[in-house]
Design a protein around this nucleic acid. Structure first.
Lengths: 205, 205
DNA sequence: CACCTATGTTACTCGCCAGTAGCATTCGTT
DNA sequence: AACGAATGCTACTGGCGAGTAACATAGGTG
């Protein structure tokens, strides 16, 4: 695992490559320590570089964090959107969307911690990204629900939000208990649960 | 609202009463600012008292926070347990348990922010309380599911955890959007969704 | 090869805030 | 009324960590 040991010092890198490396280091540190306990010195160290270099690439700790957060947010939203677009059978849609949450949580980058376990949600910029992520996923799901059931928008959005919460929580639980249940089976069970729930609402056509 | 304006200074209180008042002040501050942005000075101020007095009652900021966290954790677990004990009709159980989440989130103390939106989950003591809360609720639900369906324990726990996540997320969403859907109706919709989901698993008897 | 810019370093400052030392005041008790 | 214990206050320390000033060197280019 190259990601665990810090990079060697004294190696010069072109600006763009250094930036990418710094983002990777920052992601590891933020993900394991959280925002508050993460030290800019540690992030720099892990990239084999000193702190001022870090500040040549990012104006502040918050900006660095936001860059990573936005990236992870978009990643999740994309995964969910792709899952919904991957078929037009709603049963399969549910299956794919829930699997998307499991895959996101199972990603080795642990990016999900930034979104689902941020310790800076009181910072407005962070809060709005975190809430926005959930909202964008829920909106995509809600559109499908609205289109294929008689539920008014408000209620469809409530149901969709509940389902994202279910998927997220179940996926994180599965990750903690890894080994007891295979991923396929876990996400399958949750899909069955969710599908039985939503498929019972009145059809419009 | 007496809870908004700080208490008058210069009023002496017996130890026990002061402690309760400090806990109440701390709850307000932690809930609105989060752990990190909460200043011990502000907590003391809000109780109409100076900081050293606060330290006569609690040895550290963390201890103070933990005291509140444990209280809120127990509160939620109790509500869920009581909901499950309130009937032996599983349909009603689901309804009552989900309503418990909505009621907890709707409580004016906003205690739910401590549990569901803590910004100190990296502190082990805090993390274990927060996870433990979810786990204790899920366990209580899982027992019911296990007893009345053919699901093995692992899977029942997964389903139960997913349901707690759904209830929690939906309740918080409802709170943000307050006014658009009455609480009864919102928790009713989620109950229908959840009940259709779980009631489909094979019965043992 | 000499110069100049990119990249990088060491060693600070500066503000914030949890926690404390030492002193003042009220109030019940005798 | 006088004393002691409980309650409270002002004013500090000490450490941590984000952000910076000033200096150093590699390496491409004429």
């Amino acid at each position: 695992m190259s990601s665990v040991e810090p990079a060697r010092r004294g190696v010069r890198l072109p600006r763009k490559a250094r930036r990418e490396q710094l983002l990777a280091s920052a992601q590891e540190v933020f993900v394991t320590r959280g925002y508050h306990a993460a030290a800019m010195d540690e992030i720099a160290d892990r990239a084999g570089v000193s702190k001022p270099v870090l500040y040549q690439h990012f104006p502040s700790k918050l900006d660095l964090y936001l860059a990573l957060l936005e990236q992870s947010s978009q990643d999740l939203v994309d995964r969910v959107q792709q899952a919904l677009d991957s078929t037009d059978d709603n049963h399969h849609r549910v299956r794919a969307a829930i699997e998307a949450y499991f895959a996101f949580v199972d990603d080795k980058s642990a990016a999900f911690r930034l979104i689902f376990e941020s310790d800076l949600t009181n910072e407005p910029a962070v809060g709005s990204i975190v809430e926005g992520t959930d909202q964008r996923c829920a909106l995509a799901i809600s559109d499908v629900i609205s289109a294929d059931t008689g539920l008014p928008e408000d209620q469809a959005m409530l149901v969709a939000t509940g389902l994202t919460g279910m998927a997220q929580t179940a996926a994180r639980f599965w990750l903690r208990e890894q080994g007891r249940i295979p991923r396929d089976q876990a996400s399958q069970i949750m899909s069955v649960l969710a599908w039985r729930g939503v498929s019972g609402f009145p059809k419009t056509h």
